[in-house]
Structure formats: structure tokens, C-alpha cells
Design a protein around this nucleic acid. Structure first.
Length: 639
RNA sequence: GCCGCCGUGGCUCAGUGGUAGAGCGCACCCUUGGUAAGGGUGAGGUCGAGAGUUCAAUUCUCUCCGGCGGCACCA
């Protein structure tokens, strides 16, 4: 007999060789029916796993959060089994993990899958669920497993096994006629997986994520523990699409992109108003934080980029211009070398440090065509860039005050949870290992002193130094890096920046590269989605529309408009020969924050009927009151 | 850049081997209406570009350009 302990600390005694399923059955029939896997001594295992004596065992039911990942992985296997049944002759399976919200499976197959194939596959997957195939785990000998997969033409699987670390048990899962290499754990049978899944999209993906490898066909799907959750998720996806910044940008007439300038934004009056408002806001913040603003050239001789290292490391992605004097100029991809040039004008003393040099610098990078994405990934963008020249001793304090500044900015837009990633040295880099040790150490010490939680992002640093990336999510769950903070000992060296220290000797400053929005383009993209186009009053391109009920009020409406403009409110007027409900509807759909409705009554009494977006009530205010109220409410945060 | 899908009036989309349609928007007319669509009339498209097949291509084939979804990339 063996003894096991349940989560409530009760123990149970079972015959030697009893499994998780035996345990579940011994507790209750309903539990056994709902059970998916067990957790034994902390690890998830199959229900068929023999229990160890003295083990701590928890039965995981489909309603528990841990079940989700198991189910998603199970559904990936369903997909693979269905694909083998339907297209087995010319198809190899590779890998199919659970991911956030679902799963994918990568197949090697000459013929492309079609959207109709997805339906066929999904149908077959549901049939496999109905078949209620038992899912068995088998442990195989390594060589035998490799030989087996080779014999059935599954080269990719054979390759995976070959690359598994020695000593790792080779476990295979069998369901019906389908046998797959897999770590598990899995549900005990296909029926138990349920049918709360849907195949969503087809995509290409490189074998092992390397663009030198062949491209596989990836099928993405979503899977949940209940139909309800599935439907909720699908609904959520639809809602998210509605706030896609590319759609809203078009609907709201903010900007456009056209093929003569791929990856560059044509800002329309409304979008540009938004942009200018943000610039005004952040300028104000930077002023208060002790930055000075500069402006530097866009076209700079390649010699400078060679000296900085950009030409060597990223020349491929730089746009260049040949002059008739046979010089090569590069369109700047970053502002930092130019800022060093300003720093180097005249001599600098330790008393000048830290020198915080900001620029709304417009940069161009020749991003791969497939990377472009609305405002989020563009070839021409303007950064809220700055470089802080300081001493090594000043790094910690600067890091702390930058993080404070950044978080206060994000908070003004309602971004509360910001992911911070620590990116350390990349393979392609400048500077010695000793310098990198120093820079990474300094950054780590600084972030830890600032007390900000972060996760590691190995190998993703800039070529000149490690960085912190501040990441926001778009509505479709994609991550976008906005803010950045980088410690750089390399560029000051390469571009020979110095200052005179207290000792009268020359010293190297440290350069801290930083941005809060990242780029205006991306940040506006994130904001459009974040607010679903319903901008707060201070940001809204049009803050008020004055709408008339009858043209008898036209003259008065004009006066109201003038007064609004005089107090700095962005206002428009709607004198069209339309009913007031028509105008209300139209401006509400355009997400205008305030509508001032004026008719005969308002004209006679010098009032306006104020209608606020999102509320279907109205209040009538004296014009002077309405003006002072809106001026007050339209102030930018922290003004 | 790679794989797949897509490209029709300003917008959203339907459709066909015999040179195209809807709704919204737009213009004009009637209506002056009190808080999310009043009515009528009308204009507007070389069906992404080029080549090929065909008596005939917007429709089929190829190439290119662009968009979308991923992958790779993201200093």
C-alpha cells in the first residue's frame, strides 16, 4: 500500500501501483469525470501516472486554471491527428505547443493549406473527440524512437529526439492511430478535451524560428475549457478589431499611408493636432525634468556613422544619399551620434553633468517590408529622444528619476501596468566584454535601486549597451516597446566625448539613451487603441462642436465658436440644414467629447445646452460658465 | 525578406468570360426640425499595374506593386 497526501493535508492509502485516476475514483465519481491531470509533488502528470508513496497529489479538474494549458496542448494534438488522417501522405508533423489564448501546430507540407482546409480539419478534430480515443503515454528507447519516426517519414520528429539532452526520457503519446513525441501531460481521452476550440488562422513559420530553415505551415487556434469561454474570447477578438488604430485612423480621419511612401505617415489635420498636443505635453514634462532641447541634421556623412559603429552594425537598414561630390550621406537612423557632436562643442566640465539633451528627432530606418504595421512599425518616425551625459556615479540617480518621469507620463494616459524588460548583450555588439560587464552591472544595480520589477530579455540589448524596455500592449495583445533606457559606455569612447573632472583630467562621460513615448507614431497608435478613439478632452483633436437647431441661431453659434477659439479650445461649428438628432448622432459617432447645442432659446438667453459624449443627458449652462468649465477640463495633465 | 490570403465608386462590401451593383457618404432641391439617421433627385468606377490566353478579361494564367495574418527582423 502507498500513502498520498491531498491538498487539504488529508492522507489516503491506496494499493501499490494506483494511478491518479484510481485516486479520483476513490474520492468521487463526479471528480473522476471532471479530472484532467494530476499535480504530483508540484509537477503536472497524466491521470494514468502511478502514484508515488508519500507524494502530495492534487487532482486538476477542467475548471481549474492549470487545465487550460493542458487542454490547449491536447487540442494541438487533435489538430495533428486530424491533419495526419486527412493529409498524412504528404505531411509531416513538427511541434505544436500551447500559447497564450490557444495553441498552434507547425506542419511541413508542400501544398499550402486553404481556409477551407481549416474547416475540414476542425470538423475532423471534433469527430476525434466524439471517438473518445484513449490517450496513452509510452516511454521509448531513444534510438528506437528515432528509427521509428524516420521509418514513418517524420524527419522533423527524429531531429527533435536527436537534439534532446541525453538522459531525457523519450515519451510518446498514442491516441487512436496517432503516435507523437511529446512531453505531456495530456487528458486521459479525447472526449475529455471537449469541443471549445476553433482554428483561427494560417501562417508561415520557419522551422526552429530560423529564417535560414525551411518554412513550415502554422495553424493557429484557440481553445478553452467551456463553450462560453470560447464565445467570450471570439467576441473579445471582434471588439478588439474594432479599435485597431488603422481602422480608427481612417474612420476618424487622423492619418493615412499610401504606396508611394510605404512605412511613412501622412498626418491629416486631426491626427497632427493630436501629435502636436502630445509634443507640447512632453516638452513641458522634459522642461520640468531639467532637459535642454536641441535639433540635429537628418543627412549626415557616412564617416560619422562609421565612427559610431552604426555603419558596420546596421548599415543595411540605413537609407543613403549620394551627393554630386561623390559623398555618401546617410539619413539618420538615430540621433545619438549627432548629440555627441553637440556635446563635443566647447569643453565640458564635470559641473555640466548630468547634461540631459533632448530632441524630437526624425529618423528613418529601412525596416523589412513584412515588419511594417500601421503606426506601430514604420520607416520614418520621430522619437521623443534624449541622451543624458553623466558620470558613472550619476547613473543610479538618473535611472531612478527617469523611471519616475516615465511612470508619471504613462499614468497620465492611464497605463498602470507596464512591463519592463532588461535586455542584455546581443551577439552583434561593439565594446569589450569588460565594458559590457560594467554597463550591465550598473544598469542592474540602478533598476534594483529604483525598485522596479522587471524580467530578463537575454541577448536583446542595443549594440552599444544594455537596455530597459518599457512595453505596452495593443488591443490584439501584441507587445510594443515604447519607452527605453540604455546605458552606453561605447559611443562616448568611439566618438571621443570627454569632460574635465574635478581632478583637472579628461574623463569619459557615460551616455544614457532614453525615450518615453518611443516614437510619436507608435505611441499615438497605442493611444488610439487604448482609448478606442475616445480621447480625453485635452487630447481630442476636436474638443467641441457647436451645433445649431435652427438657422435662426446661426449668428449666435458663430459667436460661441469665436469665444471657444479665443480661450484656446479646438472647436468646430455645424450649421448644416439637418435635424439636431442627425447632428448629435454624427458627432457622437465621431467621438467628439462635447457638443454645444444652440437654438432660439439659447441665443436669446446667452446659454448653451452642453452634451457630453457618452452621456445622454444634457445641461444648460450660461455661455460664460460653459466656457470656463471646458477650459478647466481641457487642461493637460500636470499642467 | 519568407509563407499564405486579399486588392471593385470617398468608405464598407456584393457580383460576373460579353466593359458593373448596394448601403453609407457627397451634390442639389424640399423641409427650420429641441438631443443618436426627415424626404426627393443626381453625380461618381480605365474593377491595383503590366503582360499572356481568348472572338471577348474586372472575372482565367503569370509578373510586379500594395494591404492583411503570421514568421524572421526591430540599433
Amino acid at each position: 500500500m502507498i500513502t498520498i497526501y491531498l491538498p487539504d493535508n488529508n492522507s489516503r492509502t491506496l494499493p501499490q501501483g494506483s494511478t491518479g485516476m484510481d485516486l479520483a475514483n476513490s474520492i468521487s465519481k463526479s471528480l473522476a469525470k471532471e479530472a484532467l491531470v494530476i499535480r504530483m509533488n508540484g509537477d503536472l502528470k497524466d491521470l494514468s501516472e502511478p502514484l508515488l508513496d508519500q507524494a502530495h497529489v492534487e487532482i486538476i479538474m477542467r475548471s481549474q486554471p492549470e487545465a487550460l494549458e493542458v487542454i490547449r496542448h491536447d487540442v494541438a494534438h487533435l489538430l495533428a491527428e486530424a491533419a495526419k488522417e486527412l493529409y498524412g501522405d504528404d505531411l509531416q508533423v513538427t511541434i505544436g505547443p500551447a500559447i497564450d489564448k490557444g495553441f498552434y501546430y507547425d506542419f511541413a507540407r508542400e501544398k499550402p493549406f486553404t481556409p477551407e482546409d481549416l474547416e475540414t480539419l476542425e470538423q475532423r478534430m471534433k469527430e476525434i473527440v466524439d471517438r473518445d480515443e484513449q490517450i496513452h503515454r509510452e516511454v521509448w528507447d531513444r534510438d528506437k524512437a528515432v528509427a521509428f519516426f524516420k521509418s514513418i517519414g517524420e524527419q522533423y520528429k527524429a531531429e527533435i529526439i536527436n537534439d534532446l539532452p541525453a538522459g531525457e526520457p523519450i515519451s510518446l503519446y498514442r491516441q487512436g492511430n496517432f503516435l507523437d513525441l511529446c512531453r505531456g501531460p495530456h487528458a486521459p481521452s479525447t472526449k475529455r478535451i471537449g469541443k471549445a476550440f476553433k482554428l483561427l488562422k494560417l501562417a508561415g513559420a520557419y522551422w526552429r524560428g530560423d529564417s535560414k530553415n525551411p518554412m513550415l505551415q502554422r495553424i493557429y487556434g484557440t481553445a478553452w475549457t467551456s463553450e462560453q469561454d470560447l464565445n467570450d474570447y471570439l467576441y473579445q477578438l471582434e471588439e478588439a478589431e474594432k479599435r485597431d488604430h488603422r481602422r480608427l485612423g481612417k474612420d476618424m480621419n487622423l492619418f493615412h499611408i499610401q504606396e508611394e511612401a510605404v512605412g511613412s505617415i501622412f498626418w491629416h489635420p486631426k491626427g497632427w493636432t493630436l501629435y502636436k498636443t502630445l509634443k507640447n505635453y512632453i516638452s513641458h514634462k522634459l522642461d520640468k525634468a531639467g532637459y535642454v532641447e536641441v535639433n540635429t541634421p537628418e543627412l549626415v556623412d557616412r564617416k560619422l556613422w562609421e565612427a559610431s559603429g552604426h555603419w558596420d552594425k546596421f548599415g543595411q537598414n540605413m537609407f543613403t544619399v549620394q551627393t554630386d561630390e561623390d559623398k555618401t550621406l546617410a539619413v539618420k537612423p538615430m540621433n545619438c551620434p549627432c548629440h555627441v557632436q553637440i556635446f563635443k562643442q566647447g569643453s565640458k566640465s564635470y559641473r555640466d553633468l548630468p547634461l540631459r539633451m533632448a530632441e524630437f528627432g526624425t529618423c528613418h530606418r529601412n525596416e523589412p517590408s513584412g515588419a511594417l504595421h500601421g503606426l506601430m512599425r514604420v520607416r520614418r518616425f520621430t522619437q521623443d529622444d534624449a541622451h543624458i551625459f553623466c558620470t558613472p556615479e550619476q547613473i543610479n540617480a538618473e535611472t531612478k528619476s527617469f523611471c519616475d518621469l516615465l511612470l508619471s507620463v504613462y499614468k497620465d494616459f492611464g497605463f498602470q501596468d507596464v512591463m519592463v524588460k532588461f535586455s542584455d548583450r546581443p551577439d552583434v555588439r561593439a565594446g569589450s566584454d569588460a565594458i559590457w560587464d560594467k554597463a550591465e552591472g550598473a544598469l542592474k544595480a540602478a533598476i534594483e535601486e529604483a525598485g522596479i520589477p522587471y524580467s530578463m530579455n537575454p541577448g536583446e540589448g542595443a549594440f552599444y549597451g544594455p537596455k530597459l524596455e518599457f512595453v505596452l500592449k495593443d488591443t490584439l495583445g501584441r507587445d510594443w516597446q515604447c519607452g527605453t533606457w540604455q546605458v552606453d559606455f561605447v559611443l562616448p569612447e568611439r566618438l571621443d566625448a570627454t569632460y574635465i573632472g574635478e581632478d583637472g583630467e579628461k574623463h569619459r562621460p557615460v551616455m544614457l539613451h532614453r525615450a518615453i513615448f518611443g516614437s510619436f507614431e507608435r505611441f499615438i497608435g497605442v493611444l488610439i487603441e487604448h482609448y478606442a478613439g475616445k480621447f480625453p478632452l485635452w487630447l481630442s483633436p476636436t474638443q467641441v462642436v457647436v451645433a445649431t437647431i435652427t438657422n435662426a441661431a446661426d449668428a449666435y453659434a458663430q459667436q460661441v465658436l469665436e469665444k471657444l477659439k479665443q480661450v484656446g479650445i479646438r472647436a468646430q461649428i455645424d450649421l448644416r440644414n439637418e435635424k439636431i438628432s442627425y447632428k448629435i448622432r454624427e458627432h457622437s459617432l465621431a467621438k467628439i467629447p462635447y457638443i454645444f447645442v444652440v437654438g432660439k432659446q439659447e441665443a436669446e438667453q446667452e446659454t448653451v445646452a452642453v452634451r457630453i459624449f457618452g452621456q445622454d443627458t444634457q445641461r444648460v449652462d450660461a455661455l460664460s460658465v460653459a466656457l470656463s468649465t471646458i477650459v478647466n477640463e481641457a487642461k493637460m495633465p500636470d499642467a
